[in-house]
Amino acid sequence: MRHLFISRNLAPESPLRAFAKAQGWALTDRSLLTFSPLPYDPPKDADIWFFYSPRAVEFGVGGLRDVTSNPAVAALGKGTATALTEHGITVNFTGTGSPAAVTNQFIHHFESGRVFFPRARQSRLSVQTALPPEFQVMDAVCYDNVPVAEVPQVIADIYVFTSPLNARTYLQTHTLPEKATVVAIGPSTGGELAALRINHHIAASPSEEGIIKLLETLKG
């Protein structure tokens, strides 16, 4: 039986969980990070709120509800957009999930404005640092993301890392089996794996569906 590890806690109805079950694979889903909210002051005059992740939505959406203006709302990818709509927030822009591509899409969509990024303490700031001068960047740390105190070793055939920090946390503590397949959920995570000299594949889209599509091609 093949064993799949993913550095994320999957929902019971997760497509990836269903995929692993259909393949007859063992599955270990476990985040290697802990998250905690941090108080922050939302800006009163932002034209656009940009959310990097569903986690940023979880910890930052309360601030959006507190502002009396009506800013546009942008999401890095579909998963983040879904998290926003589940909170009753209208999403005006949804990127493809790849920071470099999303930055270009965002620039062409909005052209200029004051953009607020509620973010994690250890965010890579991938979009906000790439915006041209036409955009005024505003940001605030709304949650902390730190590695777990003890990183469990998982002996698997396939490792799926869902963020650069998850990848770094695991690989600074444990080595991978020689013939293991390694998957990055997106380019940022792929960049971290490359920096650690880990051979890997990158999902076509940063979602469970993108991971499944890649795993389908790797099954043979």
Rank of each mutant, 00 (worst) to 15 (best):
L176H: 09
D144A: 11
I89W: 12
G88E: 10
T96Y: 04
L76W: 11
L165R: 06
V151S: 12
D139V: 00
R114V: 08
V148P: 10
N145H: 01
K179N: 12
S163T: 04
I155W: 15
F117G: 10
Y159T: 04
V127K: 07
A81P: 04
R124G: 00
C142L: 00
K179F: 10
D144Q: 05
K78C: 00
P118E: 04
V154T: 01
N92Y: 07
V102L: 05
P147T: 10
M138T: 01
D139C: 06
A167D: 14
P132C: 00
L76R: 01
P164E: 03
E111T: 11
T85W: 07
Y170H: 12
A180S: 11
V137H: 05
V91Y: 13
A120R: 04
D139P: 09
R119D: 05
D144V: 06
L84P: 08
S123C: 08
L176T: 01
F106S: 02
A140Q: 09
A156R: 05
H108S: 14
V141S: 03
A101L: 13
H174V: 11
V115C: 06
V102I: 01
A167K: 01
T173M: 04
S163K: 03
D157G: 01
R114A: 13
I107L: 01
T173Q: 15
L84S: 13
T90Y: 08
R114Q: 00
G95H: 09
H109D: 02
V148A: 10
F106W: 06
V151F: 08
Q136L: 09
G97D: 10
D157L: 09
V160R: 14
G88R: 01
Q172V: 08
D144M: 07
P177F: 13
N166A: 15
F117D: 05
R119C: 03
F110Y: 05
T181M: 12
G95D: 04
F93Q: 00
A72M: 10
I158P: 09
A167G: 00
T94L: 05
P118C: 00
R168Q: 14
V160L: 15
S123T: 10
G79Q: 02
D157Y: 08
V115Q: 06
E150Y: 01
T175H: 13
A101P: 08
P118T: 03
A156S: 02
E86G: 02
E134A: 13
I185F: 14
G79L: 03
F106T: 04
Y143L: 00
L171H: 13
A81R: 10
T96N: 15
T173K: 13
A101H: 03
E134H: 01
P164N: 03
E86M: 02
N145A: 12
Y170P: 05
A72R: 12
Q122E: 15
V182H: 14
F110C: 02
Q136Y: 06
A100Q: 11
P118K: 04
V146L: 14
T85H: 08
V137Y: 00
A149K: 10
